[in-house]
Amino acid sequence: MARMIAQRLLAFLPVLLLVLLIVFALSRLIPGDPATTLLGPGATADQIAALRAQLRLDEPPLSQFFSYLWGVLQGDLGRSLKSGAAVTQELLERLPATLELAISATLVALVIGIPIGVLSAIRANTPLDHGVRIVSLAGVSMPAFLLAVLLQLVFGIWLGWLPISGRNSPYFLGDPVTGFAVLDGFLTGDPEAAWDAARHLVLPVMVLAAFLAATLARFVRNAMLEAMAEDYIRTARSKGLPERSVIFIHGLRNALLPALTVLGIKFAELLGGAILTETVFAWPGVGRYMFDAIRNRDYPVVQGATLVFALLFMLVSLGVDLLHAALDPRIRRRVGQ
């Protein structure tokens, strides 16, 4: 197992290096002289010269990349053009908000998506199954920002049940402990703050969970149908096992592994969706920070946020990969040889 982890990590490195190269190259795609373009028409010659120095535009391209790489290794992602603060610091402050959203949405999607998928597979080709198929296709066809706006309108504006922006109400601004607002509420012995944070979390999580649950339900259904056609299911049935244990122990368990893989792949779309969702709900995470940076032409921040999203996705993919290997005896054995 340790050898396999080492192998995967080793394969990860060249890709990581290329990812960094792409993120670096992004800023060189800015048309004209990047420093002049970013600062806009009002900039003085001194300001432009300072930014050229910060972006290291006067060095040869390869040495520019190595300086960038060296900076990243030391945790330096440059400074925001707008606030002048270190991008790394600002990203780290906002990361927990995005993670809170992403983790909650994944959990909700698992709890909703898997049972619906199983039900749909057991009742394959019935009206229920067709209904699930249509709803799940609508779920993946729905632009995240449209669902966000709809939920704001219905639950926030018309019904007035839930808050439609921000992460907590202004009177609940305690010091962050973990950075996860709901958890912090409990940790600081303030259940009201936790409740307030949870209420803020509901709508954005629904937006992200909806599409993920839709994808997962559809996928679990198909994986279940394939698993249920296997020989070991026939064996289990002929042993006289009750249908319930055939479905859950032999069918679902084998369908869950591929579902895990899909969850890993779809995490990318979850992160993309987080940018839109955070923008609509004024959620103070990395996505909203990226959106504000785009409006301010604050490219070092856009670059930093892009890198954070890519790293998150890479880590999740790697985690899914390792988990998959740990759970699937066939891969475990193949690697052991």
Partner: peptide, 24 residues
């Protein structure tokens, strides 16, 4: 293919946003 892997390591909407923001 390593280059393709690296491109696929970005959530595609994030990459599209970063590219569009750079190009203007």
């Amino acid at each position: 293919m390593r280059f393709v892997d690296a491109m696929l390591s970005f959530p595609s909407l994030v990459l599209a946003i970063a590219l569009a923001a750079a190009l203007g």
